[in-house]
Simulated assay, not measured.
Amino acid sequence: MKTIVMKSWRLLALLVSVVAVTACEEDDDDVPVARMTTAEFVQQAAASDVFEIEAGKLATANSTTPEVVTFGENLIDDHTETSQTLMTLAHQNSVNVPLPSRQTLPQDKQAILTRLESKAGGDFDLDFVAVQLEAHQQAITLFEKASNELEHQAFRDFAKNTLPTLQAHLEMARKLRTQLSEG
């Protein structure tokens, strides 16, 4: 009799666990997943481009290291191109977002540019490279998310096609960090 009671309690505990797990799984289906909208992506990607272009200009003006100057030139060229492509795509698909400028960048990005403006030479180089490492990691995260989540295929393709450039910039920044720390 005692064995039957123990088995009954174990069976009851198992059933309660199964019901609890099943109930939790069903509740998860009701939670809406926040997806990035195309307009949000366009705005964030355009702001990222403006930030990179402005930072690249500072590199060409404030650095004395040829590799940092070249990296700055690459940032200007590549992010100008992606910005133009993005704005053309947005216009063609009636995605109306205000064009960002340095003055409309988020305050944290404006503060970074202001800080970089006040530096030159080796001090500039070290800070600039650290900024580029963080900015490109953030951009890669944004573009990966967009390439997977956006409903509009043209913008998913744009994000996917831009990722190799962003990854190349991140790799350049890593190499520069190593070079500057060894030099």
Rank of each mutant, 00 (worst) to 15 (best):
R156D: 00
F124W: 05
I76L: 10
P106G: 02
L99G: 03
Q84Y: 12
S63V: 05
T65I: 00
E151Y: 09
L105Q: 04
D108R: 14
N62E: 07
M172I: 01
N161L: 10
Q107D: 08
L133N: 15
R174T: 13
R177L: 07
G72Q: 11
F128L: 04
L58C: 08
G56D: 12
I53H: 04
Q92C: 03
T60M: 11
Q179N: 13
S181M: 13
T178K: 14
S181Y: 10
V131K: 11
L170T: 07
P100G: 06
L75W: 07
V68N: 09
H152M: 15
E149H: 09
N62H: 13
G183P: 09
E171Y: 02
H136N: 15
V50P: 10
D78G: 09
K175Y: 08
L176D: 15
I140S: 04
F155Q: 09
T82P: 02
L58K: 00
L86H: 11
N62R: 14
L113A: 02
D125S: 02
P98V: 04
E151P: 06
N62P: 00
K119Q: 12
D125I: 01
D123V: 11
P98L: 02
T80M: 06
R174Q: 10
D108M: 07
T64C: 01
H152F: 11
H136Q: 07
S63Y: 04
S118W: 02
